[in-house]
Design a protein around this nucleic acid. Sequence first.
RNA 1: GCGGACGUGGCGGAAUUGGCAUACGCGCUGGGUUUAGGUCCCAGUACCGAAAGGUUUAUGGGUUCGAGUCCCAUCGUCCGCACCA
Length: 886
Amino acid sequence: MNEPRTYEHSVIEPKWQQTWESAKAYLVRDDLPREKCYYVLEMFPYPSGKLHMGHVRNYSIGDAVARYKRMRGLHVLHPMGWDSFGLPAEQAAIERGAHPGTWTYENIAYMRGQLKRMGFSYDWTREFACSDPGYAAREQDIFLDLVEKGLVYRKSSLVNWSTGLNCVLANEQVVDGKCWRTNMPVIQKELPQWYLRITHYADELLGNLSALEGSWPDAVLSQQKHWIGKSQGAEIDFAVEGHNDLKLTAFTTRPDTIFGVTFMSIAPEHRLLDRIVPDSHRAAVEAFKAEVRNVSAQERTGDTAEKKGVFTGAFAINPVNGHKVPLYAANFVVADYGTGTVMAVPAHDDRDHAFALKYGIEIIEVIQPVDPAKAKPVSEAAFTEAGVLAGNCAQFSGMPSDEAKIAITTWLTTSAKGRAVTTFRLRDWCLSRQRYWGNPIPYAYTDKLGAVPLRKSDLPVTLPTDVVFDGKGNPLEKHATWSVTANDGSPLSIRGPQGPEVARRETDTCDTFMESSWYFARYTCHDNTKPDLGCAAPLDKARVDHWLPVDLYIGGIEHAVMHLLYARFFQKALCDIGYTTKREPFKRLLCQGMVCMETLYRENPGEKKTYFYPDEIDVERDAKGRVFKATAKTDGAPVQIGRVQKMSKSLRNTVDPQSLVEQYGADSARLFVLSNVPPELDVIWSEDGIRGSHRYLKRLWVLCTEHAARLATVAPYAGKAADLAGADQSVVRKVHAVIKRCTDALEKDFAFNTAVAQCMELTNELKPDALKPEVLKLGLTTLVRLLAPMCPHICEELWRELGAPGDVTSAGWPAYDESEIAGDSVEYPVQVNGKIRGRVVLDRSLTGKALEDTAMAHETVKAAIEGKTIRKLIIVPGKIINIVVA
RNA sequence: GCGGACGUGGCGGAAUUGGCAUACGCGCUGGGUUUAGGUCCCAGUACCGAAAGGUUUAUGGGUUCGAGUCCCAUCGUCCGCACCA
């Protein structure tokens, strides 16, 4: 036995990182058959300053997959870059006077160092930042391609205005009526903005989701499905009494209920409302509109919001029966969904029912349940299911409601009073942002021509560097010359039909979700070691088609509808432009859980809680290890133990990955975030937890190094388990079983937690003194290979220490032999009426009578069946024996 | 309200997909090494019981020789969406 070497992670980790870097170990070629390739990608980070534990978890999972796939012999594309446009850079500019670019690129340099210190196996030659001139310029090219495809338009309408960011937001970025970034209220504002026609792809975005079932988390699929929100129904035109020149069109999914319409509701913002309202009711309607306008979005749509309306004084005519029904302006009708007008059928819609009761409006039943047991007076509750049309529905009476939907729509269509329509909840993507630190929208305006796209030869539009950040409005708008100066310094002009015209640039920049919508494609053809960046066009079709779709994409569930929907849309648009033929970007999606931690706080009556860092607290535990008391070290007074929550600075439940790496090493940190929990669940950080991971690596280290001399000269045991006895035999069997289980765990669900558990089990069985050296060597080299994707540095070091040839990655993932796992004998549990009464060890080949006899001869089994009749005997070969008695 | 996921020791979780419930880790208990320990090693640790043995996967029922796993109901938790006509 040797004196074991000390496990010095701070020495071996940088050593291997340098080795990998100088060997260019993770560069990948583009010219290999696709089936031998694998593209794994983690959502790239915003360069906020330094890595947090969420990054460490996300990238540890991705890196373990990348390294595992490499050990399986695949050529793995595993790139990294920076989502580097965005608001915090401008905030930093306001606060500390640094230019957003300076701040951003300093952060990138620092965080790149941190990623390298974690030992992640990226192909750094493909790295880029979205704010790099090369990437931003190519995105402007794509923007013009989108313009050409008719996917870009400018429209003035009510937009979501973030009071926190002072800029517009896309619908996806409004969460609970608040801004997704700042949590500040969002109000509605009328503004002209640039839009991307994502709705053009609504059907395909929805339809393709079914092909992703099983490969994407259900939660993401259902969120996207709901967000796209497809409804099939009809648009029906209602005449307005006294206005021959206009009509109100209502969208409904229940045209079968049209004979039950007793009123109509209209959005207060509806464009026709002012023309319809008679003077007698104008004051009341205006008052109602003002009331609706004055409440914020979340109050109007929140669950406590009261359904309210006001009679407009106008009447609509039901096209099927000529009935005259009152028109109400109602706060729950949304102007930009459907047509902003609803035909109300209180007998068959819950909300219309409540509204009718409140305002004393008639309720007419037109659908009757097929099952009479379900019949209830419609004055009590709306009947919202399918049924049969009642006798008051003219020629449609007696028709099942599903048939009537079609028949009535057909009738409306032939009478030119309506038409079949499919409506989506999905809105077009509002792309423009009134900010500096983003990619400029390549448009300009002239007095005569209005908005004109720039020509590709006039690109790129680059951001000026001499700007002032005072926190008020868009700095680009306030720049003296930028918006009227061409790239060559001359006054900006646009060639119109009558010659050049003076122009000024668009000062809006693109939503930063634009950059993250195609970066994964750009990685496939980007090379930052070459002057033309490897691909002068935005994308190189051959390479994009070679690598896409990404085999495995890993990131947080918070992007379920924003980034992941935009990226899917962009992929389709890029396809139609001709940059690729792959219509879906991500084959498999893994949404990793958050990194959480207990919170510690004190209540302050009437004020916010005071939170404590864990090292400011002492805890006491009872005999079972439950914490029952926590006190602050400073004053000894009690502190509340709060919920486990996502790490955040304001809750003081964070831990800095940097300090973990310094104290325990990157391998321990990586192992910790991969152990104990499957990737999609939240992981709870604890000091004890990381010490456990570190302790395990130290154990493995000692086990390998103290026997290094003895093991260096022998080869790992390569024979049959049957040729060994005792502990040697069971270790060989265990090795095969553990390899199988690790392989299955990673192949199926990326279940690193169970793979780690398997490795620990094997470690527990490796008792050096009881084993032949070649068996011990088999066990240890197997462990090192299985753990290498997760803890690459220590495994590479131990691989050498054990005297194994080459490096652990090229040694590959170990193989197993199924027949070596199970021995010739099986221990059968013997149940009597489903309860285990004994165990018998039998030859695997034994069947039938001999097996039954041995089982029943077992002492405790015999006692359990004594004096009873044997009804049935179930034998599952290799598994279990169950004796049924009565 | 609608949609989805899920309830397993003190805690995080495992269970080869209907076949030995509680793997692995944390914590805790006892013992040892150490001047010391945020060290390391050994043993124990679902519950009840002195033991024999019995009980246990939120609760109640069902299917089955056999259920954590399948079916039904109830309770509870988490997530998403929310006047979507």
